[in-house]
């Protein structure tokens, strides 16, 4: 990802000044955005609230104000921990968690999400890890995170976290042999076929055909 891609240009041409409609059409649960009444309960309920440049409340208003570039390139949606506190407190019952995930995913698909955003990378890495064999390989997942900025940075990070690693090893909650082979599903081929079909259907439904979603 990185530079805005072909899909982004197509979306710009199609929706020009109507970012709300673009969100309603292409973002999971996006049709809820117009229901926000700007009370701010979501902003005050978020555990990572102090770290967001734009709270969900602001994001919703920015969408309605057509601030497309600012919203889609924001780091804010990536701060969602999926705690669902905003969802259960929202007086209008907006599925805010899913909307944040949906906006983040859409921004990623358009190539507008901040490239170095750590949670963006982590999210992609997790999905890649768990769909490879059907089950998470925890060791490869963790090492992948440590070593994403290169070998030296990875070794430093692994060294800094060694106490935790050895602690888990002693507690039999970490298996070094997962580096070779971890837990996995038997029907991996079936899972891969099934997922390829799911990406294809979703691209068709969202009219994102130009963009190869995954796989």
């Amino acid at each position: 990802m990185g530079a805005p891609n072909e899909l982004n240009l197509a979306a710009l041409a199609k929706y020009s000044n109507d970012f709300l409609r673009e969100v309603e059409t292409h973002v999971e649960e996006g049709e809820w955005v117009k229901m926000c009444m700007q009370c701010g309960v979501c902003a005050g309920s978020c555990p990572f609230g102090p770290h967001w440049e734009h709270s969900p409340q602001k994001i919703f208003m920015m969408i309605r104000a057509g601030k497309r570039e600012e919203v889609l390139s924001s780091e804010s949606m990536w701060m969602c921990t999926s705690c669902y506190n905003c969802v259960v407190r929202c007086p209008r019952k907006l599925p805010i968690t899913q909307i944040m995930h949906g906006l983040a995913t859409y921004a990623h698909r358009l190539g507008l999400a901040p490239k170095m955003q750590p949670t963006r990378q982590w999210s992609l890495q997790f999905w890649d890890n768990c769909t490879r064999t059907g089950r998470v390989n925890e060791l490869k997942l963790t090492l992948g995170l440590y070593f994403r900025d290169g070998l030296v940075a990875g070794l430093k990070k692994a060294w800094a976290m060694r106490a935790i690693g050895f602690g888990l090893l002693r507690a039999k909650r970490l298996n070094p042999f997962e580096l070779l082979r971890g837990h996995e599903c038997k029907d991996q081929a079936g899972i891969h076929r099934m997922l390829a079909k799911a990406y294809e259907i979703e691209a068709r439904r969202l009219r994102l055909d130009k963009f190869k979603l995954q796989g």
């Binding site: 999926s82 983040a104 999905w127 768990c130 769909t131 059907g134 599903c185 439904r205």
Partner: peptide, 26 residues
Amino acid sequence: PDWNCCGASIGYAGSGELARHVMNAR
């Protein structure tokens, strides 16, 4: 038998919507 990962809450940027549901539906 042969259950698979749910994708957790964090896999969203890779999964999108349908693939996530398909994993659980399997």
